[in-house]
């Protein structure tokens, strides 16, 4: 708990500096989280130029509204939440939002809970016909085409490495909901990569 306390004090000091408009504090926080926020927005939007605009506008907006930050989540979550909301607004504005279709998991089993057909795709611990590099390329491509609700949780958890608390605060969802969404998103990614 000591580590957490220290972390908490550091964050409180940092928030005060940000609220006071100290440019070194802003520079520091932008340097620390900015590149990852930009990468997140670019993957959600599928367009780097728009991602830059979204991120810079969100960050300027955060600067103007930091007085409202109440410390109920971390500054990092606050940043992700702002960028996430702007990205989703922009995606919807452009009518590019991809909805989650039927859950792939619903199609596999019969009423007794057994496999309706054999599990499709490659067998064994190491895919026989696909080397890891090719498989990674496929995972990356498929991730960039997943419905946004799946893509956002996978990006935040697997790619950006946020913890449960941070993701829940960024997306305004509960831990129970996140657990379900992570599972569905991973299952959808597996289905897209394996092809069934």
């Amino acid at each position: 708990m000591h580590g957490n306390d220290r972390h908490q004090r550091q964050e409180t000091g940092q928030v005060e500096a940000l609220k006071a408009g100290e440019s070194s504090a802003w520079k520091d926080i932008l340097a620390r989280h900015g590149p990852a926020l930009l990468a997140y927005a670019a993957r959600m939007l599928g367009d780097r130029g728009t991602a830059e605009e979204i991120v810079q506008d969100s960050l300027v907006n955060i600067y103007h509204t930091i007085g409202r930050f109440d410390g109920r989540c971390s500054i990092k979550s606050w940043l992700y939440r702002a960028v996430h909301n702007s990205a989703i607004d922009e995606i919807r504005r452009r009518r590019r939002y991809v909805d989650v279709g039927t859950d792939v998991l619903d199609n596999y089993f019969n009423e007794a809970g057994r496999w309706e057909h054999d599990c499709p795709g490659w067998d064994g611990p190491v895919p026989k016909r696909l080397d890891e590099k090719r498989l990674l390329t496929s995972v990356r491509e498929q991730m960039d085409h997943l419905p946004h609700a799946h893509r956002e949780v996978l990006l935040l958890k697997e790619v950006e490495g946020l913890d449960t608390e941070e993701i829940c605060a960024a997306l305004a969802i509960s831990p129970g909901n996140l657990r379900i969404r992570i599972h569905r998103a991973r299952a959808a990614l597996r289905a897209a990569v394996v092809g069934g």
């Binding site: 795709g121 611990p125 995972v139 990356r140 697997e158 991973r186 597996r190 394996v194």
Partner: peptide, 12 residues
């Protein structure tokens, strides 16, 4: 399959 794809997602 699920485990391998999940691990690779972490390498993106």
């Amino acid at each position: 399959q699920y485990k391998i794809v999940k691990e690779l997602a972490g390498k993106v």
